[in-house]
Amino acid sequence: MENKLPTIEITERYCKGCHICVEFCPKQVLEMKGFVVSVKNLEACIKCMQCELRCPDFAIKVIP
């Protein structure tokens, strides 16, 4: 497996601040910054895609 860091793309205009991606990320990569999500620790990301799959609002994309 290659070790390249993923890109996590957040569309702030779509994010409704529901916390789903933050809470269910197995590696605490994400955090809430005010109303919207932001990336706190990209290095820890294991590209499991769970945040992207569960975001109800098409606001977070993981490009592995």
Partner: peptide
Amino acid sequence: KLPHIWCPGCGHGI
């Protein structure tokens, strides 16, 4: 059409 009208955390989007 995005963002959609569903409330924060509503599963309909999922």
